[in-house]
């Protein structure tokens, strides 16, 4: 039974990786189709000056292209192509998430515990959190434009997990026999999903705001390419901030839960173990990001760079400390 489940899990994860790959290809095509196509210039939201508008209850339901995104010209084939590939990519992503979720759940069922015991399991669960965070954001804020970076990230990490990190199911070491494992790792995984999406959005923000600056400097009005279909850099920045603002308190909680657990398992709540130290560094870096956003001269691009520094400390903690570090958090199984 355990063997069947664990094989099922491996199949589902491999399947999810392949579907992420196809989804990524669809999003690549989406971006590529926009290469020759000029977007309607993105202008500041025009004042609405209406005499009488429809009552709020009958307001047209906002559909895929967000109000920030220029309305695609339905007459053009190219426009239709872009939208079609975007939708295909998104549908495939949903399919991949289904497989991915099934893979994580069956792994847990096969192991008879939460599937958070080694690096392979952390990577599969963490990536799931990233893609789920993206799906929630698509539903709430219509961020389908994050499709390419998110699917590429999922493909990269799941691929590495399957090829390099895979370990068969094995029992947990006694230090992990605690319900705090579920609380601490779940909080950390959701927060890391948020940080990842936040970092991807920050990168897009940096790219887009640079393009906007250059276009303004050269009086270049040719708005061709997918870049000009992204929301304004301001809107991207807003999404990035929202995700970070969601992830930061959660990260604080994850560190706290870790400290409480450490008190039970190791007899001290904080001991400057390398993992703890880097969790603290990540916390400080994101605290700096939040401060930067409120500091004159640091808003915008500089703050986005600070967020990326925060993300790199997080990545170092996950990759560097797990694989090369010593200390009490040596659960990578590598």
């Amino acid at each position: 039974m355990t063997d069947t489940l664990s094989q099922l899990s491996n199949l589902a994860i491999t399947g999810a990786t392949i579907v992420y790959f196809v989804a990524m290809l669809a999003h690549v095509t989406e971006w590529a189709s926009a290469r020759q196509i000029t977007a309607t210039p993105v202008v500041a939201r025009p004042a609405l000056r209406r005499r009488v508008t429809v009552p709020a209850t009958a307001a047209p339901a906002t559909t895929m292209p967000a109000s920030d995104v220029p309305a695609p010209d339905r007459n053009s084939d190219g426009e239709e192509n872009i939208d079609r590939f975007g939708r295909i990519g998104f549908s495939l992503t949903v399919l991949a998430v289904g497989l991915h979720l099934a893979g994580v759940v069956t792994r847990g069922a096969a192991a008879g515990r939460v599937p958070w015991g080694n690096m392979y399991e952390f990577a599969t669960t963490g990536t799931l959190a990233v893609v789920l965070a993206y799906l929630v954001l698509v539903l709430r804020y219509k961020v389908r434009w994050l499709g390419l970076p998110v699917t590429s990230f999922a493909l990269l990490i799941l691929g590495l997990a399957v090829l390099l990190l895979y370990r068969p199911i094995s029992p947990l070491v006694p230090a992990l026999h605690s319900y705090w494992l579920a609380i601490h790792v779940l909080a950390a995984a959701i927060a890391s999903g948020g940080f990842t999406v936040g970092a991807l959005a920050s990168i897009l923000y940096l790219v887009k705001s640079r393009a906007e600056r250059n276009a303004a400097a050269c009086h270049d009005d040719r708005r061709t390419g997918y870049l000009w279909r992204l929301p304004t850099s301001e809107a991207i920045d807003r999404i990035a901030y929202r995700v970070h603002a969601f992830a930061f308190p959660l990260w604080t909680f994850a560190v706290l839960a870790g400290a409480i657990w450490a008190q039970y398992a190791w007899g001290r709540f904080w001991g400057w173990d390398p993992k703890e130290t880097w969790a603290f560094i990540t916390w400080v870096a994101y605290a700096a990001y939040l401060h930067a956003r409120a500091t004159a001269g640091w808003q915008g691009r500089a703050a986005a760079y600070v967020a990326l520094v925060g993300y790199s400390t997080f990545l170092f903690n996950f990759v560097g400390i797990n694989l090369f570090g010593s200390g009490l958090h040596s659960y990578s199984g590598m």
Partner: peptide
């Protein structure tokens, strides 16, 4: 704010060596 920002960066930097060099405690 600027002071806090600089000090936060310093704190993060200062915490790094202790994770790479073995610590007595």
């Amino acid at each position: 704010m600027r002071t806090a920002l600089v000090l936060l960066f310093l704190l993060a930097l200062a915490a790094i060596p202790g994770s790479l060099i073995p610590q007595q405690k």
